[in-house]
Design a protein around this nucleic acid. Structure first.
Length: 589
DNA sequence: CGGTTAAAACCCTGTAGGGC
DNA sequence: GCCCTACAGGGTTTTAACCG
């Protein structure tokens, strides 16, 4: 079914239009920027020159016919979705359409005419919303279709309509569904569209028939629920959609229509801590009470939780001694593999919350963790009180630290260490330093940029007559396996060996398996190829084992007899540096 | 073919509401 | 009313499978 509501009304109706631009924006500036941006973008593609002229308050942009009538038809095909979040994501219609849309609406709001010269035609966008251009749009605009969104899209910007959380008039409420629980895609309509359905009256001449609208998609696919954009909290509301309010009688109407559809709330794992009872017993045994905790930390907490956090602390201490500061995700995997907590979606965020408390209370040290994903950019300055001579001396002496001689120069191979996750970077850093190897944490799927850079590196080595080898370490799970395969595929045009060192199917003995995530779209390939029903994290291997696997692999490609003799070199280096240091010491400030 | 959803890596905050 | 969980929100980046 097609709704017989021309969506271009959204771009020509003042009230509708206003919602698309944040209030703080200067509209006239935005229109100029958009028009110029898009004209330049298009012109650049075909090497045309953009002509811009401003007369009185009329902005004219000429781009030698890039805006063809065909293109305008495409742009004005409003049966396609439009962007629902300004400044965030735009769908389908692209820059020209977006620019035009904004241009149209702004010219409407600000009474500033905009002229687009295109293909010997002139489109003037001016105050009158059914001007030449609007008429053109009206003529070519297609009716809008209802469309399907998936789970993520919904959780991103759409809330379900039912009956719990949002307070309405009287005591009625509306419930928000946890969209994660939805197994199938659902039909939804975008807020402004719903808005149009309910608020356009017959006087406007638009046909509105909610029943047929609800009926139609039901025939095609079993429908779960009709979704309407809504945010319960005005703070979190999409500012573009804040005008969309759902009156109770409308929600009731829809609810009645779908009486038989049950809406389940998301069932997270409530008892995500699997060793609760054990902790309780320990607490009793050690006589840990709320009062004791309150006395010691100034904040009370259930004894079993405290015991749980102490157990976490032990594990964290152990990890710290092996790797140094760790990430919370590393701790999470450890706890899961030890059977302390469940491996559920909510488990990780719960753990984060627990460890936040633990840190703030002082149970666990802040230094136990590190955040590798954020950084501070510091200016490099020194105090005026410092002695310039000292600074120069320090700089010279520290720059004279003996360098490392390249032990790979005469080798037959060029070796690199690639690991799937950042978490193990520290462990691998040691071995990479020791053997002078490039170390690359791909963080899941490698970026094309880094693959390309690697290829350039390898080409250089191949020119030198070397064989290139990547020693790869990753999880033994569908995605982990696939990541490895993708790397192989990307290097298929270069003679590069990719050796998967760990985790391999023959290394899983004694490891605690994790269940396969059934939702993983790569699961089929994994099952077929490896015939495994469980998966294994790289972190689950003992660090010593990982290191020895790496050492053995490196030794295979490294010939000790080919290490250059550097004794003479360093003798000379020493002589020279000593002379320089002597000179520096002689300088009088 | 392109949009959507899923996966991977990582992190943090605020609050509604159930349970005790 | 406290404690705790779940679930909203916020941020960064990638690739593959699937589907119409």
């Amino acid at each position: 079914m097609l709704l017989k509501i021309p969506v271009f009304r959204q771009f020509t109706d003042l009230e509708e239009l206003k919602r698309f631009i944040p209030p703080s924006f200067n509209r006239s500036l935005v229109v100029v920027k958009e028009i110029l941006d898009n004209a330049c973008d298009e012109a650049e593609k075909k090497d045309y020159i953009v002509e811009v002229s401003l007369k009185d308050i009329t902005l004219t942009v000429k781009n030698k016919g890039i805006f063809t009538e065909d293109q305008l038809q495409v742009i004005s095909d409003f049966s396609e979705r439009i962007t629902s979040k300004y400044l965030k994501k735009s769908y389908q219609r692209g820059a020209i359409g977006q620019g035009l849309m904004i241009a149209i609406m702004l010219s409407d709001i600000d009474n500033h005419p905009v002229i687009i010269n295109s293909n010997q035609k002139q489109f003037k966008i001016e105050q009158d919303r059914f001007s030449e251009f609007s008429k053109f749009l009206k003529k070519v605009a297609k009716p809008v279709k209802a469309f399907w969104y998936g789970k993520n899209a919904i959780s991103e910007r759409i809330e379900v309509l039912s009956y719990k959380k949002i307070s309405l008039s009287s005591n009625e409420t509306i419930e928000i569904i946890a969209s994660r629980e939805l197994k199938d895609n659902v039909l939804c309509v975008n807020g402004s569209l719903v808005h149009s359905i309910f608020y356009s009256s017959d006087e406007d001449g638009y046909v509105v028939n909610l029943t047929s609208f609800l009926n139609e998609p039901q025939k095609k696919k079993p429908i779960k629920c009709l979704f309407i954009y809504h945010s319960p909290n005005i703070r979190y509301a999409d500012k573009n959609k804040e005008r969309v309010k759902i009156p109770y009688k409308i929600s009731r109407y829809i609810k009645n229509f779908y009486k038989n559809i049950s809406i389940k709330s998301a069932a997270g794992e409530k008892d995500w801590i699997l060793i609760k009872e054990k902790c309780q017993k320990i607490a009793e045994k050690k006589n840990i009470t709320k009062e004791n905790i309150l006395k010691e930390y100034g904040k009370s907490m259930k004894p079993w939780r405290y015991v749980f956090l102490l157990l976490c602390k032990n594990i964290i201490d152990e990890l710290n001694s092996k790797y140094g500061a760790v990430t919370i995700r590393q701790v999470y995997y450890q706890l899961v593999s030890k059977g302390y907590i469940s491996n559920a979606e909510n488990s990780y965020s719960n753990l984060v919350a627990q460890l936040t408390d633990a840190r703030e209370m002082g149970i666990i040290d802040y230094f136990a963790f590190e955040d590798r994903s954020r950084y501070l950019l510091k200016p490099k300055t020194i105090s005026i009180k410092t002695n310039p001579k000292d600074i120069v001396k320090d700089a010279v002496i520290s720059s004279l630290k003996p360098p490392e001689i390249d032990i790979w120069e005469n080798q037959d191979y060029h070796l690199e260490l690639w690991i799937e996750k950042d978490a193990l970077l520290k462990l691998f850093k040691k071995i990479a330093d020791k053997h002078q190897l490039n170390l690359y944490p791909s963080r899941g799927y490698s970026s094309l940029t880094k693959i390309h850079e690697a290829k350039e590196r390898f080409k250089e080595q191949i020119r030198k007559g070397k064989e290139c080898v990547i020693l790869y370490f990753g999880d033994l799970d569908p995605s982990g396996w696939n990541i490895y395969e993708v790397i192989q595929k990307k290097f298929s045009d270069l003679p590069v060996t990719i050796e998967r060192i760990a985790v391999n199917p023959d290394q899983t003995e004694g490891l605690i398996p994790m269940p396969l995530k059934e939702k993983d779209t790569r699961i089929n390939g994994f099952l077929e190829e490896l015939k495994l029903t469980e998966c294994y994290e790289l972190d689950a291997l003992e660090p010593e084992l990982i290191l020895s696997l790496a050492e053995n692999a490196i030794d295979k490609y490294f010939d000790k007899n080919l290490i250059p003799d550097d004794s003479e070199w360093f003798k000379k280096y020493q002589e020279i540096t000593e002379k320089i240091i002597k000179l520096v010491n002689e300088i009088e400030a």
